[in-house]
């Protein structure tokens, strides 16, 4: 195993441990509730993880369609990039067709990430609520996406991709990237709330 691969492996372990610790630190979500449900919490959760993602499901998405779609593409690219990063540790060749799709996805995600970064720097409302973490997290993700794109085209760039991926993973537990861990919990609670009260689902 190469040194960059070892660094990536170590970073994966550190990130997983730190994020698990962060999740444990907030404690367990409340158990059964006492108020009789009007609707079905499970249906609300299903809604939260399916049709609630549709661009017209929420005013925040339909009213900011370019930003929302950029966010969706960005995150799709990030998930693919992380999967590709892990795959660099195993001797597994990515089929040519999938590789082509990944190149397109990494490129689109990189453009979207950069666009979101510019928007954050330009829009006064966003600037007002931003912290250095917003900039660093975006730049690290964009760098990893760029490396993933390059590594998909030029195999010699894989070690750089691994090192940038390791940096991203080590940074993840420090700031807003932690949302990758808590988003599922949040969305589940959100869906259960509206499902239980018969408003959604």
């Amino acid at each position: 195993m190469t040194v960059p691969a070892l660094v990536l492996l170590a970073a994966l372990a550190v990130a997983a441990g730190s994020l698990a610790r962060a999740r444990l630190a907030i404690g367990s979500i409340r158990g059964p509730l006492f108020a009789a449900p009007r609707g079905n919490p499970a249906a609300g959760i299903r809604y939260a993880f399916t049709t609630a993602f549709l661009p017209w499901a929420k005013e925040s998405a339909s009213g900011h369609l370019p930003t929302y779609l950029a966010g969706i593409v960005y995150h799709a690219g990030i998930f693919a990039m992380l999967a590709r990063l892990v795959l660099t540790l195993v001797p597994l060749a990515v089929p040519r067709g999938i590789a082509a799709v990944l190149v397109a996805l990494f490129g689109a995600a990189l453009a979207c990430g950069f666009g979101l970064l510019v928007k954050r720097q330009v829009a006064p409302q966003l600037r007002a609520i931003s912290v250095p973490d917003d900039l660093i997290a975006n730049l690290l993700v964009d760098a990893a996406l760029a490396a993933a794109l390059a590594a998909s085209l030029v195999p010699g760039v894989v070690p750089l991709f691994q090192l940038l991926g390791a940096a991203l993973l080590l940074y993840a537990p420090l700031g807003k990237l932690r949302h990758m861990l808590f988003l599922v919990t949040s969305r589940r609670l959100w869906g259960a709330y509206y499902g239980r009260r018969g408003v959604r689902g």
Binding site: A22, G27, S60, T67, G71, L126, D134, H179, L189
Partner: peptide
């Protein structure tokens, strides 16, 4: 006495601000 659910919400906000006009 921080509710774990509220902690998850606080961890999840990425300051996208898409909710502003709602």
């Amino acid at each position: 006495r921080l509710d774990p659910g509220v902690a998850a919400f606080l961890e999840s906000c990425v300051r996208c601000n898409l909710c502003a006009e709602s």
